[in-house]
């Protein structure tokens, strides 16, 4: 019983990362119908940039994190501008963009493989302190992550519901053609979506690099967990769907990791297939 509580707290920590990646993916998927596999690449790029700037170039940790976020936002925006834009302009559809996105992810993955030859980690002792409540070991860092997630979601909520860009985005989610007709500047909104979503993925990437470390495979892995979270939560309500899905996936990976660690990806993808078959609109859709 006490073990279960421990697994639960691990799951909450994981859910924080997934929530940050998933909400950005959901934002792009729901508004632009782009299945952005390279969202995982953006996540990974931030982690590696953070590592490079802080560990190798010796930048102050906060400054390095901020630069990594900016780099992530820029990379996300450029992927859309340089790759997805031309594919769509030449008559490609959702599947073509998906394939091109896989291509982007392959290129970055091999680049990081050559550069790092494996895991990089920025872990520092201060935030990784643990404290013990009853029989459960808690990490200060997990609380830090959850606080950041709460802040990010709060800011996102305000952005989506209190600004004109947010209104445009919600319009695109419901009906993109109609929004264009009533004067939503689709191109401008699109840039905003990619910048915001990518910096959220970057935030998760920086935290992951700090915590467990980054490997060239982390991008695709985290992305697909985010995808399953989004399919689970549905995109009817982006924020609620992503956080519910991410919490469920955090628990799933924590419990699967505890009871049958060698079947984690089996559990995640089997769940994805079952969801696609029976409830593609998500549990909340």
């Amino acid at each position: 019983m006490l073990n279960l509580l421990q697994v639960f707290s691990t799951g909450l920590g994981l859910a924080g990362y997934y929530a940050l990646v998933a909400v950005g993916f959901a934002l792009i998927f729901a508004t632009l119908r782009i299945f952005h596999v390279a969202h995982g690449t953006v996540f990974m790029t931030a982690g590696y940039a953070f590592f490079g700037l802080h560990r190798l170039a010796g930048l102050h940790i906060a400054l390095a994190a901020a630069c990594a976020l900016a780099i992530a936002a820029l990379v996300g925006l450029l992927i859309d501008k340089i790759i997805y834009g031309p594919v769509l302009k030449r008559g490609g559809g959702m599947f073509s963009v998906f394939i091109a996105s896989l291509g982007v992810s392959l290129i970055f993955e091999s680049g990081f493989l050559v550069w790092s030859k494996g895991v990089v980690s920025v872990a520092r002792a201060e935030l990784l302190d643990i404290f013990i409540v009853g029989d459960v070991v808690l990490r200060r860092f997990d609380f830090f992550i959850l606080a950041i997630v709460a802040l990010a979601y709060g800011a996102l909520y305000l952005w989506l519901h209190r600004t004109s860009t947010g209104l445009a985005i919600r319009g695109l989610t419901d009906n993109s053609e109609l929004s264009a007709i009533v004067g939503v500047e689709v191109a401008k909104t699109r840039n905003a979506i990619f910048l915001v979503a990518s910096s959220l993925a970057g935030l998760a990437g920086v935290l992951t690099a700090y915590d467990t470390g980054m490997t060239p495979a982390s991008g695709v892995q985290t992305l697909f967990i985010g995808v399953v979270a989004v399919i689970l939560g549905g995109t009817r309500n982006i924020l609620l769907g992503a956080i519910v899905g991410a919490a469920a996936l955090g628990m799933l990976t924590a419990f699967a990791g505890y009871f049958f660690p060698e079947w984690i990806s089996f559990s995640i993808f089997a769940m994805m297939i079952i969801l696609i078959i029976f409830r593609p609109q998500g549990l909340l859709g």
Partner: peptide, 17 residues
Amino acid sequence: GPLQQALYGLLLIGLMI
């Protein structure tokens, strides 16, 4: 290996565009 992988990525993008 990584070079091949990167080239495949480029090919996929080039094809789609």
